[in-house]
Amino acid sequence: MAGPGAKPRKDVQPKLRLDKWLFAARFFKNRELAAEVIESGHLRLNGQRCKKPGHGVMEGDTLAFSQGRNLRLLRVRALSDRRGPAQEAQQLYDDLAPTADAPLE
Rank of each mutant, 00 (worst) to 15 (best):
M1T: 08
A2S: 12
G3N: 12
G3S: 12
G3E: 07
G3I: 05
P4L: 11
P4R: 13
P4I: 12
G5W: 02
G5Q: 11
G5N: 12
A6W: 01
K7I: 14
K7N: 10
K7L: 15
P8A: 14
P8V: 13
R9M: 06
D11R: 10
D11H: 13
V12W: 04
V12E: 14
Q13W: 06
Q13S: 14
K15F: 15
K15C: 15
K15M: 15
L16F: 02
R17G: 06
L18H: 01
L18A: 00
D19R: 02
D19S: 05
K20T: 11
K20A: 14
W21R: 03
L22T: 05
L22R: 01
F23A: 05
F23Y: 15
A25K: 02
R26M: 08
F27S: 08
F27I: 05
F28H: 06
F28R: 03
F28W: 10
F28V: 10
F28G: 05
N30T: 14
N30V: 08
N30Y: 12
N30F: 11
N30K: 14
N30M: 06
R31V: 10
E32W: 08
A34W: 02
A34E: 04
A34G: 13
A34M: 00
A34S: 11
A35E: 04
A35G: 11
V37W: 05
E39W: 05
E39Y: 01
S40W: 02
S40P: 00
S40C: 11
G41M: 12
H42K: 15
H42T: 07
L43N: 06
R44S: 10
N46L: 06
Q48S: 06
Q48A: 07
R49E: 13
C50D: 00
C50V: 15
C50M: 08
K51E: 10
K52L: 07
K52R: 07
P53A: 12
H55P: 00
H55M: 05
H55E: 10
G56P: 02
V57C: 03
V57M: 06
M58W: 07
E59R: 14
G60N: 07
G60C: 08
D61G: 04
T62S: 05
T62K: 10
L63C: 02
A64T: 13
F65S: 04
Q67H: 14
Q67C: 09
